[in-house]
Design a protein around this nucleic acid. Structure first.
Lengths: 153, 153
DNA sequence: CTTGAAAAGAGCGGCCA
DNA sequence: TGGCCGCTCTTTTCAAG
């Protein structure tokens, strides 16, 4: 992955609706090799997919909550079913297994407190958890899907 | 925004490379009205933009860190410059002002511990902060940009 | 990698119901 | 609104330098 690939990725991460002609021009290539690079990046999975980003506020999903979870039971099969259950909750945008004091970390997006309460009840009713801490966002200062890329390999 | 718009948004959130013809078929419309709905959704800002999602692991950005920040100084101008400084750090993917014990919450993506250490030093050297807690992710179980939409208005 | 070009396909817009 | 039917532009492939 050379500097040109990084340029292409950076531009496509910011706007994937750009035409190949314009993209090629911005990275100082003609269409054909530019197109081939994109194909390669897609085939290798570096570009996972192209998606439309929806404004959460405009569709009534204005409440973001970070949820820290501590668990008791740590058996392998329990963890697996826990992971699957949480993954399937549509309000969960991100779900990480953590190192340290917190076992899991979620970012949850809902319409309002009432909706979060519903989510919370579903979460704790279905699964026995040692501790669940909810932290509520007042303001989204920055949210991006653009990774800062550096040359490698 | 009716049920058809929601279908369109859901499909485009999952895959924006789909053609209008195929999309129209999936929502039981012909191309023109389907296309017009997409235009309307884009003009109104409900669809913010179309982007390419890059696999962080494949570009050597395998370390995700959640950073909780408590601040001392709460003067308006200080907060503004803090927000701007943090927003401009490319490692910061998400940045929220919070309610409660934690003042700010970041999700930071870097290549490894050394890179995180560099980020951390830049953060605390530049700005006086009361408390900064870093929590490290071991495993990304789920990460999506797809909002779960419900009918409204 | 470049240019050029051509076939296939998709986006876009008018017009009618 | 939604649907039919073109026109236009892009994407995609190919050949040759």
């Amino acid at each position: 992955m050379d500097a040109t690939d990084i340029k292409i990725l950076t531009l496509l991460q910011e706007d994937a609706s750009i035409s190949i002609a314009e993209l090629a021009q911005k990275v100082n290539l003609s269409q054909t090799p530019c197109w081939k690079r994109i194909q390669r990046l897609e085939a290798s999975g570096i570009i996972q997919k192209r998606v439309a980003l929806v404004d959460p506020e405009k569709v009534g999903l204005g409440l973001t909550v970070f949820v820290s979870i501590e668990t008791n039971d740590h058996s392998g099969s329990w963890l697996e079913s826990f992971a699957e259950f949480v993954s399937e909750m549509p309000e969960v945008m991100e779900f990480y297994r953590m190192a340290g004091d917190v076992d899991y970390m979620l970012r949850v997006v809902v319409s309002d407190m009432a909706a979060y309460d519903g989510f919370y009840k579903r979460l704790i009713e279905t699964i026995p958890l040692k501790n669940v801490t909810s932290r509520f966002a007042m303001q989204r200062v920055k949210a991006t899907t653009v990774l800062a890329l550096k040359a490698s390999k």
